[in-house]
Design a protein around this nucleic acid. Structure first.
Lengths: 155, 155
DNA sequence: CAGATTTAGTTTCATTTGTAACCAATGGCA
DNA sequence: TGCCATTGGTTACAAATGAAACTAAATCTG
């Protein structure tokens, strides 16, 4: 007969290396750090600044609020990143004629240049990571992340 | 005839919402924050401390070095987390007779209690997240994350 | 249109985190 | 054995982050 088994306690079940939130955290950190290492010092750009550049590079004329929404950064982080970027003349701010609180932001030519130079580095890193997966797996990954992102919204 | 198309530049190809490192970062943050919110205040425990508790809960008698390896935290983070846990009498340190620099760490009964109370909360959050996926997708996810973790190691 | 409320964005301050320097113990090794 | 390099861990300092308070403009409401 089968040996009588006690049901494992939650504490016994929780193995850090198998715990999804932990795994995601390690993965995200490894990837972000590796990529940031390639541009952070070379371009004197933080990750939040990079995100602002990336989004303005594709959609010029956003306000800080819109950038915050697009990047999922909070408004303080956006404010700081934009301030540094404006200071560095990588982003230009012009007044919004309809609302004096808002500023319409867009990349300067220097900002465009940063964008154009970092984009291939970022994409190459992503591609390098994705070489671990075949085409089918990449599709699966996209789908799974979409589902998890959605589920995590309501956690 | 097909219209002549210019090859898109990298800057045009890089869409933040589709960029894997960005997606992973958002996902990881959402998940970690949601889970931490459930225990951080209630147990006065930071994420690094929680990781130390989790690993010591399953493998008592580790040194700080070993904890750092097991959790992928750097030694400073471990040192700080352990210091707070010892202070709170959740972790006990005893001298290693072979090497005076090392301390053998393990959970106190209070630490065990924290572990036993948080484990089900953490697992429940993970399960809740995973309800978005069916059994097959969960397997795929595990496999994909393993591959990416491995690939990210050498980025 | 006056006062209250909301919104966009910034500043301030406390906490967290990361890096580097440091200290003490150990392990070569000549 | 005596010196040097390495290792385990902590400390100190700077930079990043987050929460809350704040400013100023816009909007709502009576």
């Amino acid at each position: 007969m089968a040996s009588a088994k006690r049901k494992p306690t939650p504490a016994e079940l929780l193995v850090l290396e198998d715990f999804l939130p932990y795994r995601l955290s390690i993965l995200s950190n490894r990837v972000s750090r590796a990529i940031a290492a390639r541009y952070a010092k070379a371009f004197d750009l933080t990750i939040p600044e990079w995100r602002v550049v990336a989004v303005l590079g594709r959609r010029a004329g956003l306000t800080a609020k819109e950038i915050a929404e697009a990047t999922e950064m909070d408004k303080v982080a956006v404010s700081r990143a934009v301030a540094r970027l404006v200071e560095a003349k990588r982003v230009a701010a012009r007044a919004d004629r309809d609302d004096a609180r808002r500023q319409i932001l867009s990349l300067t030519s220097q900002g465009e240049s940063v964008h154009a130079r970092i984009a291939p580095i970022a994409l190459a890193s992503e591609q390098r990571l994705l070489t671990a997966l075949d085409a089918r797996e990449r599709e699966q990954l996209d789908l799974l992340i979409d589902k998890l992102l959605d589920a995590a919204k309501t956690l």
